[in-house]
Design a protein around this nucleic acid. Structure first.
Lengths: 130, 130
DNA sequence: AAATATATATGGTTAAAACATATAATGGGA
DNA sequence: TCCCATTATATGTTTTAACCATATATATTT
């Protein structure tokens, strides 16, 4: 039904014996959805495809989480949705609101900070290596 | 007793009306502790200081989480500890194990992936901006 | 003597990812 | 035509780790 977590399972093989969940994504679905919606309206399935652009293998994405996050974003007023049924399958199309754009602006700051932190992490790791 | 979250509270002010917790750190304490311990033995309080090097304000760090994570890392065999009491306060000093170094190696891969993803995030955000 | 800094630890709450499963319409191939 | 894969959305449960609060005790500074 859902071919999911194939690649992650391979990692599991390699990481056998490690009790920490390394592949757990963190705080990424919500800001990513806002980001893509800031570029234009989209429906959920489309957004799942687009998450791959950021480097996540489609197979590893929790589809349920995407839809759930979209519903929550709407409940909070960051996006708005409507049903579209032209050509076949009806789909719920999302649009970002101005509130959503403001939230994304805050996220960008966090993303930049986090990127800097990860960069420092890598630099420290590589120090004094032969 | 603990002057914590001063800076974060300022952010809260700015982010008023946003119901999403933007400042929540994610999956960072554990790998960071391993990283610093890979450079040499340390005790918990020292590690709290060092977390600041990665760009986190000391005030925002959950000290309890640091100690808890260290205990867990030891329980899982990624670090080892002993009590040291020379000059004053006794402290529990941690050392990374070879298992810990292996775990850190896996983490580095994740960190690099994540940094790339964050970079793409920023690039996409800046596309078609005036 | 009191206050602050150093140092470690644990109990409870919450958010979000991870995991599982359900539903249903559509289009292509056997 | 029937089956199956793909498209498409959704919700229930479990787990993890951050977040928040608090407790304890020694050492140093005011």
């Amino acid at each position: 039904m859902r071919r999911i977590r194939n690649i992650v399972k391979e990692l599991d093989e390699k990481e056998k014996g490690c009790t920490f969940s390394l592949q757990r994504l963190s705080r990424f679905i919500q800001p990513s959805l806002l980001l893509f919606l800031s570029k234009g309206q989209c429906h959920g399935y489309d957004l799942i495809e687009k998450l791959g652009v950021l480097g996540f293998h489609k197979e590893a994405i929790d589809i349920g989480a995407v839809y759930r996050t979209l519903r929550k974003l709407e409940k909070e007023g960051y996006v708005k949705s409507f049903w579209s049924s032209q050509k076949g399958r009806k789909r719920r199309v999302y649009r970002i609101t101005s509130r959503g754009r403001t939230l994304l602006k805050f996220w960008i700051e966090r993303v930049k900070e986090r990127k800097e932190a990860l960069n420092k992490f890598i630099i420290i790791y590589q120090e004094d290596k032969l």
